[in-house]
Structures are given as structure tokens and as C-alpha cells.
Write a protein that binds this DNA or RNA. Sequence first.
DNA 1: GGCAATTAGCACCTTTTGAGTGCGCTTTGG
DNA 2: CCAAAGCGCACTCAAAAGGTGCTAATTGCC
Lengths: 153, 153
Amino acid sequence: MLQLTKRTEYGLLALVHLADREGAVASVREICERYPLPKRTLAEVLKDLQHAGLVESTRGSSGGYTLARSPLRVTLGDVVRALEGAPPLTTCESPIVLKGGGCEVQPNCPIRSPIQRVRERLWQLLEHTTLHSLVSGAPHVSLGALGAVESHR
Amino acid sequence: MLQLTKRTEYGLLALVHLADREGAVASVREICERYPLPKRTLAEVLKDLQHAGLVESTRGSSGGYTLARSPLRVTLGDVVRALEGAPPLTTCESPIVLKGGGCEVQPNCPIRSPIQRVRERLWQLLEHTTLHSLVSGAPHVSLGALGAVESHR
DNA sequence: GGCAATTAGCACCTTTTGAGTGCGCTTTGG
DNA sequence: CCAAAGCGCACTCAAAAGGTGCTAATTGCC
């Protein structure tokens, strides 16, 4: 499916919340009081974001999470990679053999290389979308490289 | 998951095969003799592609499938839409309410609109990748609009 | 010191989705 | 008439995603 998981969605909302109050710690409870998210699952997500180095945690009674770095330096790609990994677009990116031993020079499926390029483009898109751009409502920051398509639709 | 399904992968391979022998019909059996794909599943996929108008079918003993239009006018987006639909990137693109009645002006989640823009970009990428570009090995056709990123990585 | 609030870690269950198959029907060429 | 092909539906099986239970470990505050 060409779709982000709910975990990623939860993570993004949490990060936006953290970005809003830059510096101050926010607990899972606090975030769940703001958005209607399942508390326990959000906790798992934030734990994963902590492992990925996107947020820092402080434990104890008045603990919580803070952003590990500026919203300008956290990208959608970072979040997706932390919560979903970076899987290939198709299993075809791993080698698939032709039957009958046709083409030996390129023993992999004919789609492989073009699909890889599409995946690279997709990740460029994710990497260029910063947390800051989600917070500010400004569509994209540092997207000049892709900006040529702006005029469509 | 940010990943294409195997059905889409199978469909792309089948379409590439059809594009190779433009005009001639190719049966499911023939395609499966070329690529190691499960016959029945591929049949389901081709049926869906037929419903979507991407291929035309002829029944009967010497039947099979042909491309419904030029490889230049079949895009990755067409194939994905036919086989996976066009789901939103997050459920967040459907309205999610803030708790406590905070912001009335924008009652939806703060991520919604930026995520929609990312999805639009993603689909532009898919729409600009043609079947022809998969066949010819040329990375992308009519991708001038997105070409500015070419130099990265 | 003790309590309450919080994060940390692991294991488990449930639901959803994807992949694949069974079976019978229809169509068509030889 | 038969064989080869597509058509349609329903069903099973496996994997992934979403969510929860339970028990620590940590820390602030009384």
C-alpha cells in the first residue's frame, strides 16, 4: 500500500506538538489530551522516535519528551524511516530471475532499476519536507529543487 | 507502508511484456513462462487492469491481452490506481478533531493540509513515470518538470 | 521514606490486508 | 466437440498493523 501507517501519523502529530512548545517537555498524557490518540500506542511510537534520536526523553514524575533538534532539521523521511523503516518499493528491487535463461547480461527483472529511481525520488520528496513546514503551514521548505512542479493543479 | 503491492509489481511486469510485443496478444500462460509469477494471481491482476481500461482482452482459445494504448500513455500512477486504488497518505487526511475545542477556525489536524500536498507530489511522480520509460530503461520520460533534482546523490 | 507520575521493555491479542487458490462458467478457434 | 483461454466469486492462509497488559525503573514532591 502506498500509504503511511497510523504510527507515523501519530508520530508526526506528537512532533508537531513538541515543535509548538520548543524546549518544554511534553508528556504522552499531555499530547493525548490535545489529540484523540491511543495513549499506549503513542507511547510506543515516542519510544521509537527516541531510539532514532529524533526526540529526547526525561523520565520521572515530571518527565516527558522534547525535540532533539530544530524542526528545520527533522524531515518526514526521518520520521518514516524511524517508524516504518525504508523498505524497497517492490520485492522486484531484490533480484528476480527470468525463466528460460533469456537475458544473462541483465539477469534481474526489467523493472528493477527504473523502480529504484522512482523510490529515490520519493525519498527525496520525504527528505525535503521538514517538520517546520508542517508546523508553519508553509507547504514545503527547501523544496526549491522540486519547485518546478508548483504550477500543476 | 510506503511500498507497492506484489499485485502492482506483477501488473507492471505483465505490461512491460505486452509493451515489448506491441500489438500481439499475450496470454497469462505466456507471461508466466517468461517470469516466475503465480498464474492465477496474475490472471486476477490482468482482469483488474482490463476493468481499468489499461489492457484489452480477447477470449477464446487463442485469446489473451494487449495494451489498450501506447506505452507512452500508460503511467505508473494508472497502474497503482487500478490495482491499489488511491488511498490518502494518512487517515489524518480525513478530519480529526482536536480535543478540548481548541482551534475552531481549523478544526482539523494540523498535519492534514501539508500531508495532502506531499501526496499530490507523490502522485505527480507516479503520473510522470510512463510504461515506456520502464521498457526502454530510460529513467523517466516527460519528467522535465521534476528534473531539477537529477543531480542529487 | 513513600507515593504518584512518568518513561522503558516485552509479550501478547485482535483486526486488517495481502497473496494465493478452488471451482465452475463462458467464449472461441480448430 | 474439445481444448485453451478469459471471467467471476468466494474462500483460505499468512503477514502486517494496531492496540493492550503487565511489570519494571526513574524521578519529583510531600
